Simulated scan of single mutants.
Amino acid sequence: ILLGGGTLGNGEGRFSDKVIKVPSKRGPQALRLLLDDYDTNSNKNENYLAYYDRQGKNYFYELLKSLADTTVMTPEEFIDWGHDEAYVQAIGVGECAGVVIDLISTLLFESEEKIDLAKSAFDNSHFSDSIYHAYNASINTAKALLLSENVETNSQANIISLFDEHFTQTGKIKLPSSFADTIYQINKNEPTENFAQQYLAESISLLKIVQTYREKTQAHETVS
């Protein structure tokens, strides 16, 4: 979702900010949320561009972030616009396998983006936000690796338990403790600077471990 762009007059304008990604089927819901928020909180005669500047990018990220959670999606959200049937993921050789590989790469890239958000929040002493972004990055990273082995997931809790089942307990991925113990620290610690720093470091470490694992796996598949 891009916000904050527009014409400023006198032949001048500015580009929109990339605020957040949401599934396309949630676009109308996002638009309604944005318009309702503007209707409720804007000042008299304040246009949307001025309202965006006053509230700031992070305000709109927080407003829309619930729509960005792709770990739980309804069946209708898998049906493309203009189609009547749900998208069916076919995993195999050729184009279908390529699509899955691209999706895994996209998920890992999104993990990097979430880590960047966590770093930015930490640098600005927004420790709760940093922890939140680091948590999402770790969940996203785990989801990507599960997808690479054709493991279906349907919730964040499901991702956490399945990652341990398929990777840490089997020794494929070596972590200092279980993924569940690592990720659920968020429920046992206050959002202090020290914990935010530790939690972010663990999220970064997980991403690097998973990326290395993927590179080795892909290299082996190429040789085979």
Results as ranks from 00 to 15, higher is better:
residue 114 K to G: 01
residue 121 A to G: 01
residue 54 R to V: 00
residue 139 I to G: 05
residue 101 I to T: 10
residue 112 E to M: 02
residue 127 F to A: 00
residue 50 A to M: 06
residue 135 Y to S: 13
residue 37 D to Y: 14
residue 38 Y to R: 11
residue 121 A to T: 04
residue 23 P to A: 05
residue 56 G to H: 09
residue 104 I to H: 03
residue 20 I to P: 05
residue 78 F to W: 04
residue 53 D to N: 13
residue 29 Q to D: 08
residue 90 A to V: 12
residue 61 Y to L: 13
residue 67 L to V: 05
residue 125 S to P: 04
residue 41 N to S: 05
residue 79 I to A: 12
residue 137 A to Q: 07
residue 57 K to V: 11
residue 88 V to W: 02
residue 67 L to A: 05
residue 12 E to Q: 11
residue 13 G to Y: 07
residue 60 F to V: 02
residue 133 H to D: 07
residue 131 I to W: 00
residue 51 Y to S: 12
residue 79 I to W: 04
residue 30 A to D: 03
residue 109 F to M: 12
residue 33 L to P: 10
residue 56 G to Q: 10
residue 125 S to Q: 08
residue 96 C to Y: 15
residue 45 N to M: 13
residue 73 M to G: 00
residue 144 A to P: 02
residue 62 E to S: 08
residue 114 K to D: 09
residue 34 L to H: 12
residue 34 L to F: 06
residue 65 K to D: 07
residue 73 M to D: 05
residue 50 A to N: 02
residue 33 L to G: 08
residue 39 D to V: 07
residue 63 L to F: 03
residue 34 L to E: 08
residue 119 K to M: 01
residue 42 S to K: 15
residue 86 A to E: 13
residue 85 E to Y: 03
residue 83 H to C: 12
residue 147 L to E: 03
residue 86 A to N: 09
residue 111 S to G: 08
residue 109 F to A: 15
residue 89 Q to F: 00
residue 57 K to F: 02
residue 51 Y to R: 07
residue 18 K to G: 06
residue 35 L to K: 15
residue 33 L to N: 12
residue 25 K to N: 15
residue 136 N to C: 11
residue 66 S to L: 05
residue 126 H to Y: 01
residue 18 K to N: 14
residue 125 S to I: 07
residue 58 N to I: 05
residue 21 K to Y: 07
residue 77 E to V: 02
residue 22 V to T: 07
residue 145 L to W: 01
residue 133 H to Y: 10
residue 132 Y to W: 11
residue 21 K to A: 14
residue 49 L to N: 03
residue 99 V to S: 01
residue 50 A to T: 14
residue 129 D to H: 10
residue 28 P to N: 10
residue 51 Y to Q: 13
residue 17 D to V: 02
residue 99 V to R: 03
residue 121 A to H: 07
residue 91 I to C: 06
residue 58 N to C: 00
residue 45 N to W: 08
residue 58 N to M: 12
residue 64 L to A: 10
residue 130 S to V: 09
residue 52 Y to T: 03
residue 88 V to H: 03
residue 116 D to K: 13
residue 94 G to T: 11
residue 77 E to W: 00
residue 22 V to Y: 00
residue 40 T to P: 10
residue 89 Q to V: 09
residue 105 S to C: 00
residue 33 L to I: 15
residue 142 A to M: 04
residue 96 C to S: 15
residue 20 I to E: 01
residue 117 L to C: 09
residue 110 E to H: 13
residue 126 H to I: 09
residue 19 V to Y: 04
residue 141 T to R: 00
residue 120 S to A: 11
